[in-house]
């Protein structure tokens, strides 16, 4: 057992635990905080995998901006906890059964049928996955999708504003 493997296992445990925490928390604020932790753990994985730029983006965009937005909405709407209601009776057991089946299938696929046992080098070249390499690729080969992304973000922005506009008062401008 190498140090890498131990580190991986610990981090994986943390990630799974926080994900489960998000899943099981009654309070939505807790869920959100667990998710932040999960995202941070994933960012560390990215660093281990030689993707520093993505790791940093993960922290700023996901754990930072998106989750703050989530928290903001939770607090705004005051819906930290939902009153207990009549759930769908067989929804939960069915979900668990399906999840287990899916898990079995995934395990079978990953470890038995198509085992990709490549080892990931622990010391990638210095620039691999750095901002410069990513940037060069983005502005050369992926220039068009990159520009399309900007339009997508603009549309999303306009859409969000239109959706949240208060029709009764804002309709007439």
């Amino acid at each position: 057992m190498t140090v890498d493997l131990i580190l991986f296992l610990i981090l994986a445990a943390v990630a799974i635990a926080t994900a489960l925490g998000m899943l099981l928390s009654r309070n939505a604020v807790y869920s959100a905080l667990f998710l932040v932790l999960n995202f941070a753990t994933v960012a560390v994985f990215y660093l281990l995998l030689g993707a520093p730029f993505i790791a940093l983006t993960q922290v700023t965009v996901y754990a930072g901006a998106i989750m703050v937005l989530f928290l903001f909405v939770i607090m705004l709407l005051g819906t930290e906890e939902l009153p207990k209601g009549e759930g769908l009776n067989w929804q939960k057991p069915m979900a668990v059964i399906l999840a287990v089946v899916l898990m079995v299938e995934a395990t079978f696929l990953i470890f038995v049928q198509e085992p990709v046992a490549d080892l990931i080098s622990n010391s990638p070249s210095a620039d691999f996955g750095g901002p410069r390499a990513i940037g060069e690729l983005l502005f050369s080969r992926y220039l068009l999708p990159f520009e399309v992304t900007s339009i997508l973000l603009l549309v999303a922005m306009v859409g969000a504003i239109v959706l949240t506009l208060n029709k009764k008062e804002g309709g007439q401008k």
Partner: peptide, 22 residues
């Protein structure tokens, strides 16, 4: 009318198809 049970159906479909492929 429950979105969640629709989602469950989707998952059921995924599991089934994946199982078939495997």
């Amino acid at each position: 009318g429950f979105v969640r049970s629709y989602a469950l159906s989707v998952l059921l479909g995924v599991v089934t198809i994946l199982g078939y492929l495997l």
